[in-house]
């Protein structure tokens, strides 16, 4: 992700604020569709697709990341087909219930929003993103949280993996660790993280930390940035108001009249 954020492309050069605003508008647009909507959401794939294509991002890599988070959305929606059995459409002879539509809608929305968010991080870089959020007026504690979450995720993950490996090496024969062992490991990791937080705080205080993180990014938004945000917002509003997919479908099926 870090390497992606440091690449250069027309999308990378857009001001972080413009991208944040456009992506926030995108998420709002996606969420505002009625619950059974599936086809009308399709044109919105243009946004993550454009970020990935113009930003030269590796689509396969980002898709894998989307897949990692997919189980969460799956569990949110999985019971809809069971609870909502009202038939709403037909595919051939099979009646499709409303539950399946809303489930599909949840999965599509999930894919849209998560891929757009990942593409945003990948084409901006976390530090520019945080600087952008800060300039947009996000309170400092949230920005600091985000920065630190990102910075220490891997450090603490590594620590956890090392502990897990050490525990596995000493549990010869057993195929999985006892449930209790996991509890101890997690507790230990928590204590260690708290100790680390203390040390980090100490090192911040010794360099004059006063609750405000100052990031050195001077970006003046140009007309490109404004055009980027306004253009996409206009597109989202358009896609939200008219069912573009249906329009295109009707246009295609009009036949040679």
């Amino acid at each position: 992700m870090d390497d992606l954020g440091r690449m250069d492309s027309p999308i990378h050069r857009i001001d972080a604020r413009a991208k944040i605003i456009a992506t926030a508008a995108f998420v709002l647009a996606v969420m505002s569709f009625p619950r059974y909507e599936v086809s009308a959401l399709m044109p919105l794939f243009a946004y993550p697709f454009a970020l990935i294509a113009v930003g030269n991002l590796p689509a396969g890599y980002l898709l894998k990341k989307v897949a990692v988070a997919a189980p969460f959305a799956l569990f949110v929606g999985i019971f809809n087909p069971l609870l909502d059995r009202q038939p709403m459409g037909m595919i051939g002879p099979v009646a499709i219930s409303g539950g399946w539509f809303s489930f599909a809608s949840i999965m599509v929305r999930f894919t849209l929003t998560v891929s757009a968010a990942l593409a945003l991080v990948a084409c901006t870089g976390i530090h520019r993103l945080c600087a952008g959020l800060k300039m947009l007026g996000l309170p400092s504690p949230f920005v600091v949280q985000l920065l630190f979450l990102y910075r220490y995720f891997f450090v603490i993950g590594d620590e956890g993996l090392r502990m897990l490996r050490a525990a596995e090496m000493r549990s010869t024969g057993a195929r999985t660790l006892a449930f209790q062992t996991y509890g101890t490991l997690i507790g230990h990791l928590l204590v260690r993280s708290m100790d680390r937080a203390q040390r980090i705080y100490r090192s911040m205080v010794s360099r004059g930390f006063d609750g405000e993180v100052r990031l050195l990014r001077r970006e003046a938004p140009g007309w490109r940035d404004v055009a980027f945000a306004c253009g996409w917002i206009a597109f989202f509003a358009f896609a939200r108001s008219w069912d573009l997919a249906e329009f295109v479908g009707r246009w295609l099926s009009r036949g040679p009249s």
Binding site: I126, H127, R199, R202, S203, M204, D210
Partner: peptide, 24 residues
Amino acid sequence: FQDPDDQLFMPTVFDDVAFGPLNL
């Protein structure tokens, strides 16, 4: 500090080195 991971907490090396002066 003994563990540089405790001292380098910003997203880039440059931000980290500029952290102190900016706070001043």
